[in-house]
Amino acid sequence: MDIQKLKAFVELTETNSYTETAEHLFTTQATISKQIMSLEKELGIKLFSREHRTIEITDEGELVLEYAKQIVALKDEMYEKISEHKREHSLDLVIKTIPSISNYHALELISEFHQAHPEITLHLSEAESYELIPALQNGSADAVFMRIFDMDESEFEVASGEEDKFVVVVPKQHRLAGQTAVTMQDLKAENFLMLGKETNLYDPVMKLINQAEFTPEVIYEGR
């Protein structure tokens, strides 16, 4: 029995839409339809009733669904265990970093480590900041380089290598350009260009602004 047919069946029971199911499984609506029909033929039952362009699971389909979910879940668990076993018994090192890693000394350390240990296969890739902690938690990364603000460090071993500071960037002719220090109150009437909410730099900046008790005029959010 093709596991993909069961996966399509389980997904279709959740979406009740061939179009959405195809999108979720990165295939076509026609492929999903063929997989369901093939599964019905293989099992000798009707999994769905199709009346008035609506999809409704049959009693026989409900019976199959219970087992299909278990089979799909076990398949995913098996592949996860295999990947975990490979990682534990191989000399692969997976490191994920923030996109601006080139601005930090960490990149030099990684390069030096790679040259000193050619026996280890290094997999280095960039990821958005919100993806890094989940990568550690689900085992898809062995180590990450990221910025730390108010993170609970009890779950991980953390080594701080460098320290960043927030700065304000203004045009040379701006009224604040000649000052050696700027307070948040000085910026109350200014337009803000900031990194977006999906980055982990947004909340700390907003926290400083909230402490200064004003609502910023954000005219641009970027990544």
Rank of each mutant, 00 (worst) to 15 (best):
A116W: 07
I101K: 06
P204Y: 06
I120P: 08
S125F: 05
T180E: 13
E198G: 10
A106K: 04
N191E: 12
H85C: 05
E119H: 04
E157W: 07
L201H: 13
L176G: 07
E80G: 10
R147L: 11
F113T: 03
E153M: 11
S125D: 15
K172W: 00
P171N: 05
K81C: 03
E119P: 00
M206A: 05
T215S: 08
L187W: 02
M206Y: 05
F214T: 08
E155V: 01
D186A: 04
V168S: 08
Y79E: 15
I148M: 06
L124Y: 05
S111A: 14
D76T: 08
K172L: 12
L201S: 11
K172N: 07
N103R: 14
A212P: 08
E128C: 00
A116V: 05
F192Y: 08
Q179F: 07
L208Q: 13
L176S: 04
V170Y: 01
R175N: 07
R147W: 01
E213A: 14
F156S: 05
L176T: 06
F145Q: 02
E213W: 00
I82F: 10
E128N: 04
N103F: 09
E157R: 07
K188N: 03
G139A: 01
I148C: 02
I110R: 02
I95E: 11
G178Y: 00
F149D: 08
F113C: 07
